[in-house]
Design a protein around this nucleic acid. Structure first.
Length: 106
DNA sequence: GCTCTGACTATTC
DNA sequence: CGAATAGCCAGAG
């Protein structure tokens, strides 16, 4: 595949997986890292910061269904547009994604 | 090749 | 529930 040949394998795998996430579905940083057999949740976030412009980063959230730091507002627009199950919550942007229903695994 | 940084997570106060 | 602490990994300088 190697469509995202920009950095190490890890980055390529992360970008490839995120790009494969179907609409209306989401994944947590921990899950993405878990798929690669590496608890590098932080590394996944870094990949998004550098190459997130090339992938649907809004489909990748933190543990508990909270959107990425500083991007909650922007991500919410995508969730409503794709029909991602959201849940009202008194955290971050005042909402969170229903992982129990939107969680997706390859 | 070492050090700093960060879109994280879990635990504790 | 909110803030603080520690542990974790990979990339960039």
């Amino acid at each position: 595949m190697a469509v995202f040949e920009r950095a190490g394998e890890y980055t390529e795998q992360v970008l490839d997986l995120v790009a494969r996430i179907p609409p209306g579905r989401v994944l947590t940083y921990g899950d993405v890292a878990w798929v690669f057999g590496r608890p590098g949740a932080r590394a996944v976030g870094m990949v998004m910061r550098y190459h997130g412009s090339s992938v649907p980063w809004w489909r990748v959230l933190r543990a508990g269904g909270h959107p990425p730091t500083g991007h909650a507002e922007r991500a919410r627009e995508h969730y409503e547009e794709e029909g991602t199950p959201l849940v009202a919550a008194a955290t971050d942007a005042g909402y969170r994604v229903d992982l129990d229903a939107a969680r997706w695994l390859p």
